[in-house]
Design a binder for these strands. Structure first.
Lengths: 176, 176
DNA sequence: TAGAATGTTTAGTAACTACTAAACGAAGTA
DNA sequence: TACTTCGTTTAGTAGTTACTAAACATTCTA
């Protein structure tokens, strides 16, 4: 039983769309990345439109978002007014960019607010019943430790390149 | 300048709400977890309602979701018809549960579809131009390797307990 | 058995998101 | 200058989500 190559591409695109949505990105983003990723040459905006079935407007905005994440690169050719887009193939590089992007986001400000809670409790500048304050202090501190651990993990991972990454995962999987 | 303890609790709850939303969960979920987490004793549904400002219905459904993720535990007391809820304090345990939950999700089926694409290409059962097939094969294989690396990383992390986790992150951060 | 206490389910809603269609802008070309 | 060609922006929409309010189910108690 043989499969049509065009069909195969569509299946792949569909798969990446779902994955994209699962990771909290629009599914159109996944589709655009997919067609760029399996294209041997950079594609123009209209070619992406044609291959994804999205409209120009959608592709225009989402391709920019992808570029901000470092997942695609925009280029232009001399004496050609079109822009061309191609996929980044070094995913580890992209991870770095994504994590960096998220650092300035409201997420970090939320994490910071937990840290502030902790600091207020530690500095003794909170009025209230002593036993309860002590209890909350310990809990919040444990949570903060957890966040710190997660943070240093992602920092470490984001600093690894393809080679180092796979080495570490192998080591970790041996750890059982 | 001293802070009111009640105010502090509210700030903490607000912070966790935002973090929850950032991670793709309802913000109410974060609020519920927060009030349970800093409560010295298990709370009844109505107490959660009162402390979060959510309605009974919302708390009822979301507390169940939290329990499914292993982030809260439901208990009941003899000769008391109320249910009581308390927060799980071992986050690493919860991570395990969350990752496990996600494994059966549609995410995995999407990842599987990428693997199928790869397998079809490798088995030679795809019709089409040879050079293009070869190109796509290499690209999809690289993507699959990346997914595998991510997968083994999360598997490894999910197997660690609090102690092992922090050890690994320390090692990783020394790696530069 | 009626009534109260507790938790669940359901119907509806407000806000958000990812899009489409189409107007618009900018910049080359006849 | 008018006419394309390409990309962006905007207004509107269908679908989703996280909730509220209220009906409902269950189980204990008087």
């Amino acid at each position: 039983m043989t499969t049509n190559l065009t069909q195969l591409k569509q299946d792949f695109t569909e798969g990446l769309s779902q994955i994209s949505r699962f990771w909290g990105f629009p599914k159109g983003m996944g589709a655009i990345f997919a067609v760029l990723y399996i294209s041997p040459s950079p594609l123009s905006l209209d070619e992406i439109v044609q291959q994804t079935g999205l409209t120009k407007g959608a592709v225009s905005t989402e391709v920019r978002a992808l570029a901000r994440l470092g997942l695609v690169h925009r280029s232009s050719r001399l004496a050609d007014r079109k822009d061309y887009y191609e996929a980044e193939t070094d995913f580890y590089k992209s991870i770095r960019a994504i994590l960096k992007e998220r650092q300035n986001s409201e997420f970090d400000s939320a994490v910071r607010s937990v840290r502030e809670t902790l600091e207020k409790l530690e500095s003794g500048s909170v009025s209230g019943e002593e036993a309860e304050k002590q209890f909350i202090l310990e809990r919040v501190r444990a949570l903060q430790d957890f966040f710190d651990a997660l943070d240093s993990l992602t920092r470490a991972v984001s600093k690894l390149d393809s080679l180092g990454f796979s080495t570490v995962t192998k080591v970790l999987s041996i750890l059982k």
